[in-house]
Amino acid sequence: MTPSTSPGAHRSATLPARLTRRFLGTGSVLVLLAAWAGLTMVTDTISTSRFPSPLQFWQSTKQIVTVGYADGTLVGHALQSTRLVVLGFAVAAGIGVPLGVLMGWSRRAEALINPAFLVIRPIPPLAWIPLAILWLGLGDAAKIMVIFFAAFVPAVINTLSGIRAIEPPIIEAARMLGTGRWRLLSEVLLPAAAPMIFTGLRLALQAAWTTLVAAELVGALAGLGRVLNMAQQDIYPAMVMVGMAAVGVLGWATTRLLAEMERRAMPWLAH
């Protein structure tokens, strides 16, 4: 089969070609689902004590939605986790973006702050978890602290890059037009750096979710991570799967929300 690497190749021109692609895509998912059902329920090739069957998955979902699991319903746990992610993310963005602007704009500020940053930055966010638990216990505060450190770094770095990447003529034009300091920030620097700032926020959100789930896995009283943890200890793979699916869905949903905010914040971009 010949390689199809032309740049236009991924924009299939013909209708039959596009339908074939859709077909292949849905087809593979369906095949997998069928295999899942078949191997676990029909033939017993995969032991359901290790990997849940679709039926078990469905039953566990019903359970956690109605009766609840790990001291809460699915909605309750999901809200708890989402709440923490949003809070941690907001604080990280609220501090990280202005700091990134400062460091991007002023070389002096960057030289001063960078050393501290360089010490903090290589530490993987998850490595903060034990320290956070030591300092703040198993409650919300510890989770938010860890999420903060995870989301903070990409927010700062991308904002800094975004400001640095502004073409000098734009700044010179702004100065030529007699722009005052605050207006320069709000009407020139931030809009110019906005695309990169949003990239940073996207990365920050991803990091926030990962860290939150991990933190809840290590120790929590509620939340999706707790569900996962308990299900693991109870040797209840179907519920583990439900937890993972919930994490995936919420992660996707919050990402879409951010993407929509991004789209609205920058109406001038050619979409």
Binding site: P169, A174, E187, A192, A194, M266, W268
Partner: peptide, 10 residues
């Protein structure tokens, strides 16, 4: 300016 330097967001 040669490269216009218009603000793309305005």
């Amino acid at each position: 300016f040669q490269q216009f330097a218009l603000f793309p967001w305005k």
